[in-house]
Simulated assay, not measured.
Amino acid sequence: MSTNLKLFFQLIVLLFLFKQNVSEFEFTNIKCICLDEQFSSIEYCLLKSVNRSYKYISLKVNLFKAPVTKVKVNMVLHKRFNGYRPFLYNFTVDACRFLKNPAANPIANYFYGFLTVHTNVNHTCPFNTPIIFDKLSSNFVDHRITHVLPFPEGDYLLETNVYVNEVNRVVLKVYGSLS
């Protein structure tokens, strides 16, 4: 084997050994809509950019008619193709039943994994206190969508509808870009 060919194969092996993931997730927007002001209110819903590389989202929903004992969550992942189109996931889960046994629903558990360390929704029903998602960073999301379960590059929208007692109460829309 020639020296040039050996060097070529060694270079290829080195590239595979030192391969770095260049995909990066970035939050682009968040919209929180309270559909029933008698039931709950959104105290804050924000996308905070600390610097060019660190962004996070935070949310606080105050409940006026506690305790909440019957909750369903519908999540739809959209990808932008000439407008946002449903992509890969569209599911509804009974949140009270799910929180008793998260392993029973692997898809919902994957998305719940984004929130577990950033929320106070870590117990089963009933919910009596405000619902808080605190400082969910784009770096944390980036790790989960590039290493845990890789996604293709593009612009995404995660739309979440929260139903309490079979009535849609809150709509959350989180926009992001994977490049």
Rank of each mutant, 00 (worst) to 15 (best):
L77A: 07
L15M: 15
S179Y: 07
F151D: 02
F81I: 14
L149M: 11
F91Y: 11
L115W: 02
K48S: 09
N105W: 05
N29T: 02
I57C: 14
H143E: 12
N51E: 03
E166W: 07
F18N: 09
T92R: 13
A95F: 13
D155G: 10
L158N: 05
D155N: 15
N161M: 14
N139A: 15
A104S: 14
E37D: 15
G83Y: 03
N82H: 13
F111P: 08
F39S: 13
N4G: 05
L11N: 08
K70G: 00
Y44G: 06
L47E: 03
L17K: 06
N62W: 04
S41D: 14
V68D: 03
V162I: 13
I30D: 04
T69P: 00
L5T: 09
L88E: 00
N122Y: 03
F98I: 03
L149S: 10
F8P: 00
Y84W: 07
V171Y: 05
A108C: 07
I57L: 13
N139G: 07
H78W: 01
K19D: 03
S49V: 13
F140M: 06
V71C: 04
L7K: 15
V76R: 13
L149C: 09
V61G: 02
P130W: 12
L11S: 15
F18E: 00
P67R: 05
Q38Y: 08
S53Y: 12
V164W: 00
I107R: 10
T146D: 01
A103L: 12
I42M: 10
F8K: 09
F91G: 09
E159A: 11
D94M: 08
T3E: 12
T92G: 07
D134S: 15
T92W: 02
F64N: 15
I107K: 13
H147C: 08
V170Y: 14
E153C: 10
V73N: 01
K19F: 12
Y54E: 14
S138Y: 01
F114T: 04
S137L: 09
N29E: 10
C125M: 09
E159R: 14
L7G: 05
V121G: 00
A108V: 04
